[in-house]
Nucleic acid binder design. Structure first.
Length: 274
DNA sequence: AGTGTATCCTGCAGGC
DNA sequence: TGCCTGCAGGATACAC
């Protein structure tokens, strides 16, 4: 999916398009993306005005005028595409799952080829509890490395798996986990509790460097990701290890390796990362 | 309790 | 051309 930088890019693009608009109706073409009954979703959104769009981890959160939210998790292939009017012909998204029509005639489409994404309309307090169950935001300055180190110390799971667990830290996915671990010199299969205090500091710094740079470039497009304007992210060219199996490490020239665990590929430099 | 695996779904690239 | 396999940015139910 869209990881944190892609979700952030989407949120920034969406704000211009949807904040201040009032929802006239919602058409649900693929009810399986809803994590709640269809009737509940429609009742919760109808007639509500969007007051802001925020990001929490990889989630895009539309805040409505009654304090409730529409939370969208983009899964692997989800997109949020605004249109000035009903999209016609070749502009029509091919895998529209939910179509929201606003009172001014503009439209927001949640499009998702694989339908791993989810959409739900929730009372504010329910969302707040959900958010409380997620780990800290890596870019939040109030997160300091001693806290990260203490949290890593509670688990023997491979540090790449640890980073992907949204309950431990929010917004990190497979690409940026690979990139940050490379910059920090930590092997993706190292048990989390064997990351030293100094390495935890480096890892947090690396995460922030990578995530900020990716946001600056509008995210990473491998194949599916598109921003709210339908554009692709330019960060793909900057990747050090993700998807780079067999290519020379930029630091030492050693061939980048791929290893599969937890059903996901991990990419690393065998000499720079231990 | 904590961890790894299988699964949801579709599309695409590469091998033969 | 076409069929087959493997792979994909995520999250979670389940078995150990």
């Amino acid at each position: 999916m869209p990881e944190l930088p892609e979700a952030e890019t989407i949120v920034r693009g969406l704000r211009r398009a949807v904040v201040g608009r009032t929802i006239a109706s919602a058409r649900v073409i693929r009810p399986d993306v809803l994590r709640q009954p269809l009737a509940t979703f429609r009742r919760n959104v109808k007639g509500r005005r969007i007051t802001s769009v925020e990001r929490r981890g990889k989630n895009v959160v539309h805040v409505l005028d009654d304090g409730s939210v529409v939370a969208v998790n983009l899964g692997m292939t989800g997109r949020l595409l605004p249109f000035p009017g009903p999209p016609k012909g070749s502009r029509r998204p091919r895998h529209a799952a939910v179509i929201v029509r606003f009172q001014d005639g503009s439209v927001l489409v949640f499009d998702d080829v694989r339908r791993f994404g989810t959409v739900e309309a929730l009372p504010g307090d329910v969302w707040a509890r959900r958010s409380d169950g997620m780990g800290p935001e890596p870019l939040d300055p109030s997160l300091r490395s001693p806290r990260l180190h203490a949290s890593l110390a509670t688990s023997r799971t491979p540090v790449r798996s640890w980073l992907l667990d949204q309950r431990r830290i929010a917004g990190v996915g497979n690409i940026y986990a690979a990139e940050a671990l490379y910059l920090a010199g930590i092997h993706p299969q190292r048990p989390a509790n064997r990351v030293t205090r100094a390495e935890a500091r480096g890892l947090l710094r690396s995460l922030r460097t990578v995530l900020r740079a990716a946001i600056d470039h509008g995210g990473t497009t491998i194949r599916d990701y598109r921003d709210a304007e339908g554009g692709s992210g330019a960060y793909a060219r900057k990747l050090y290890v993700y998807g780079c199996e067999g290519e020379p490490c930029r630091r030492c020239g050693t061939s980048i390796r791929r290893v599969v665990f937890s059903n996901r590929s991990a990419f690393y430099c065998p000499s720079c990362q231990s």
